[in-house]
C-alpha cells in the first residue's frame, strides 16, 4: 500500500514535469511528435530506474558510512553521466532497432534535471531501497505520460491558428499550464 502511494504520488499527483518542473527542456524540446516523445519518455524512465538503484547504493553504502555526503552532487552527476554512457553502449550492442529509436535522445538525458532531481528526492525523503526503485518507476511513468500527452496536443496545435507572437514556446507553455491545472484534479487522490 505504501509503495502504491509512492508510485501514484510520483506519477500523477506530484507529476515530475507538471508540478516539480523537472525535465522541462525535453518536455518543450522533444514534444513535437507522439512517437519521439514516447521514445524519450521510455529512455528517461529506463535511466531513472537505474539511477534510483545506483544512487541509493552509492549514497547509503559509500557516502554515508565514510561521512562524505557533502560530495553527493558531484557523485550523483558522475553516476548519471556514466550511466547514460553505459546504457547507450549496452543498447547499441544488444538491440540495434531500439538504439536507432532512442539514439539521439540518450545523451540529452544527462542534463535532464528530472534524473538528478530523482536522486536528490530519494536522499531528501529518506526512501528505503525498494521505495526508491518504485519512486523511480513512478517518476518515469509520470514523465512519459506528461510528455506523450503534450505531444498529442501539440500535433493538433500545428493545425490551429495561433497568433504570430505566441507561436512556438509561448503557446506550448500555456498549454502546459492548462495541463498542469488538469493534473491538479488528482490532488485529492492521495492525502
Amino acid at each position: 500500500m505504501e509503495l502504491l502511494v509512492i508510485f501514484f504520488g510520483a506519477a500523477v499527483v506530484n507529476n515530475f514535469v507538471l508540478s516539480y518542473f523537472l525535465g522541462i527542456c525535453p518536455f518543450i524540446g522533444v514534444s513535437n511528435k507522439i512517437s519521439s516523445a514516447f521514445s524519450m519518455g521510455l529512455a528517461a524512465t529506463f535511466v531513472m530506474v537505474l539511477t534510483a538503484i545506483v544512487s541509493w547504493l552509492i549514497y547509503n553504502l559509500i557516502l554515508v558510512p565514510y561521512d562524505l555526503d557533502f560530495l553527493q552532487y558531484v557523485a550523483f552527476i558522475l553516476v548519471i553521466a556514466s550511466l547514460v554512457q553505459f546504457v547507450e553502449m549496452f543498447i547499441k550492442k544488444m538491440s540495434r532497432p531500439l538504439y536507432r529509436a532512442l539514439g539521439i535522445f540518450l545523451p540529452l538525458i544527462t542534463t535532464n534535471c528530472a534524473i538528478l532531481g530523482l536522486a536528490l528526492f530519494i536522499v531528501l525523503r529518506d526512501y528505503s531501497f525498494v521505495e526508491s526503485v518504485v519512486f523511480g518507476v513512478g517518476a518515469g511513468a509520470g514523465f512519459t505520460l506528461a510528455i506523450t500527452i503534450m505531444a498529442g496536443i501539440r500535433e493538433e496545435l500545428d493545425l490551429a491558428d495561433v497568433p504570430k507572437a505566441f507561436q512556438g514556446a509561448p503557446i506550448t507553455l500555456i498549454v502546459a499550464g492548462i495541463l498542469a491545472l488538469a493534473f491538479m484534479g488528482f490532488a485529492g487522490m492521495i492525502s
Binding site: 505566441f166 509561448p170 499550464g177 498542469a180 491538479m184
Partner: peptide, 25 residues
C-alpha cells in the same frame, strides 16, 4: 491561488513571452 500553483507558472511565463514577442514584432 492559481498564480502561485505550478499551473500559474507555466501560464504566466507563456503570456509574458508572447507579450515580449508582440512588442518585438
Amino acid at each position: 491561488l492559481v498564480m502561485i500553483l505550478p499551473a500559474g507558472a507555466f501560464i504566466t511565463l507563456g503570456l509574458m513571452m508572447g507579450l515580449f514577442n508582440q512588442i518585438a514584432l
